[in-house]
Structures are given as C-alpha cells and as structure tokens.
Simulated assay, not measured.
Amino acid sequence: MIFQKAPLRLHIGLTVCILSIPGVAHAQTSATLAHIRATNTLTCGVNQEEAEFSTSDDHGSREAFDHDLCKAVATAILGPHAQVAYAEFPDDATGQQALRTGAIDMIATQTADFAHAAPSWVAMTRPVLYDGLALMVPKKLGITQARQLAGKKICFIAETETEVSLRAWFIRERLDFVPFPFQEEGEMQAAYATGNCAALAGDGTRLANTRLAFGKHADDYALLPELLSKDPLAIATRSTDADLSHIAAWTVEILLQAEEDGVTAANVEAMRRSEVESIGRLLGRTHELGAPLGLAPDWAAQLLKATGNYGEIYERDLGAASPLKLARGPNTLWSHGGLMMALPLK
C-alpha cells in the first residue's frame, strides 16, 4: 500500500492511501460524489485526539477505527482499488468546520449529539461507536462495579462534561459522591497513580488510551464494564450530499449485517455459495443492493474483503486484538446483548 503526504487547507494533515477503481455512475450524483469518482479519492476526516484530557472533546483517539470506516466507504464507492485521503484533525470542532467548508468529504466518527447533529447542513449515520463516561480503577482494589465507588474519591478534569455526567449519575443512583477535581492532567494522573483517588473518570475511549500510556503498568488498571452516560459517535457528511450520505449509512448496515451472518474478510467468496437469502443479497448474488445507491452489484462484497465486518474492525482497532483492549460493551451485536442491529436487507 502506497502512502503520500500533502497539505490540506485548515492546516489538516493529509495522508493518501492508494487502494483505485472505476465506480458506477449514478443519475443524480452530487458534485461531491462526482468529484470522488473523478479523482478516485475519498477525502475522509479522522479524529486524532491529543493524548491529554481535553475540555473541548471527551473522546479518546480511535484513529485506526476511523481509517477502516473511511476505507469501507471508499471501497463501496470506488471498488477494491479505492484511494483514501486521510485528513487528521485534533477535535470535533475542527473536523466539523472542515466538513462544512468542503475541505473533506466525510468524518469517520463525529460526536452524535444535539449540538453536532442539529445543524441543517450536516447528516449523520446511525451510531458506529457507543462511547460514554467510564471509570478506570486499580485492579488491586478489587472494584468491579461503579456502585462500589460510593464514598471513594474519583479523579477527573474539572469543568468538563465528564464532571457533569459523573455528578448526575451519583445523584440518580443516590450514592455518596466524593469528587477530586483537577485543572491539569499531569497532576490528576499523578494523584491517581499514587493511590490518592480510587478511580479515574472519562469517556471509555479516552481511558483506554490513558491506560495504554501507563506502559508496562497498563495491566495494573481495569475499565469497569458499565458506561455511566451516552456519548455516541457516527459518520458525518453534508446533508446536501444525499447520495454520499446514503452510501455511508448503508455501508454501516452492511458491516453489521455481515457480522450477524458470519461473513468475514476471509470467507466472502465461500459465502457467496450460501443458500441463506440475506447472505445472497449481502454479497450481490441477487443484484438488489447496487442500483438503488448507484453502486456496483457486488459493492458490499468488495468492501467486506477490504475491511472485514464490524466485529473484525472493532476487535482489530479497539478491542482485544488492539493495544487499547477496549471491551465491546454496547457495541456488541443485539443478539449478544448489545445495541448493534443491522437494518434488514430486503
């Protein structure tokens, strides 16, 4: 795979990953989708959060996950040799500005809340990642549930959404909240590492990155299984690019349906012979999924070969097979108790 670096306006770093192919023309193609096809390139915003806790963005870096979502949408549009220009930005606000001005075609993971989704110019898919307030504890304390932190000091950065959500959860649960707020991350982590607080609070993706930063001591800490608030992320596009928005939305459904049906990057060709009707639709045997979106009949099969299904992406980029080792939690399929359920392909 070939990588190139180039400048992008708004001072966003641009990495080009060559993957190229001719796409299928569509009668009502937007200017953005036409440009993507003409250049064989999807310009995709990737959130590259700073390692430090931030007052402007609660999430942690999920760069590899973002890259795979960009690659999936690009392959859906352009085929197996798609080209992706990865535009990196430090927080939600910078990424949203880049999307609004046309510097990028889409954002792989943008906070899906009222403030970010309400503007009429933006369109979002269903959540692709359920993040939210989590708690990290030293394993030696033997704490396995958030309720066990009643009456114990909890470290967090003051005047952030983390503080608001943390206080709200303790009030709802009628538990004794002992806050230990900090203005500076270094002081907070020092207090946590020396045992001056029983837990560190932040979004799950943020805490997974913080734990990783502890290096050889990372395994001394555990993220508790429950999320205390909701802070989901979704793919964002411009609402004026309805065709691109629909392709992005159905790319997510394909990734989930493939996991539900057991279709992986490695077995796509073998599964084409399956007699299961939903798998036949998924892999293009019935030619039902391409034309309505202006895509090739086998677009879903091609993107699954490129990235694998949702579960493969998650485990590789965020989960057990990644350095972050972030449990899937609500990002598990609905059939296993999670929130991820594909819309039917019928």
Rank of each mutant, 00 (worst) to 15 (best):
A150W: 11
G151V: 00
G151W: 09
G151L: 05
G151T: 02
K152N: 07
K153V: 08
I154C: 07
F156S: 08
F156R: 04
F156Q: 08
I157F: 10
A158Q: 11
T160R: 07
E161P: 07
E163C: 03
E163P: 01
E163F: 01
E163K: 03
V164W: 13
V164T: 15
S165W: 03
S165N: 14
L166G: 01
L166D: 04
L166A: 05
L166V: 04
R167K: 15
A168H: 13
W169A: 12
F170C: 07
R172A: 15
R172Q: 15
E173H: 13
E173G: 06
R174A: 14
F177M: 10
F177T: 01
F177H: 11
F180H: 12
F180L: 14
P181N: 02
P181Y: 00
Q183K: 14
E184P: 15
E185W: 06
G186I: 00
G186V: 10
E187W: 13
M188R: 08
M188T: 03
M188E: 10
A190D: 11
A190P: 02
A191S: 10
A191W: 06
Y192I: 06
Y192P: 05
A193F: 13
T194G: 08
G195L: 07
C197K: 05
C197T: 08
C197N: 07
A198H: 06
A199W: 03
A199Q: 00
L200K: 01
L200H: 04
A201S: 08
A201H: 04
G202E: 04
D203Y: 09
G204D: 12
T205S: 10
T205M: 06
R206V: 01
L207I: 00
L207M: 02
A208G: 05
N209S: 08
N209K: 00
T210G: 00
T210A: 09
L212H: 08
A213H: 03
G215K: 11
K216R: 12
K216D: 12
K216N: 11
K216G: 03
A218V: 07
A218N: 08
D220L: 06
D220F: 09
D220R: 04
D220V: 04
D220Y: 00
A222N: 05
A222P: 01
L223F: 07
L223Y: 07
L224K: 06
E226Q: 13
E226K: 12
L227M: 11
L227R: 12
L227N: 08
L228T: 01
S229W: 03
K230G: 12
D231Y: 11
D231I: 05
P232A: 08
P232E: 00
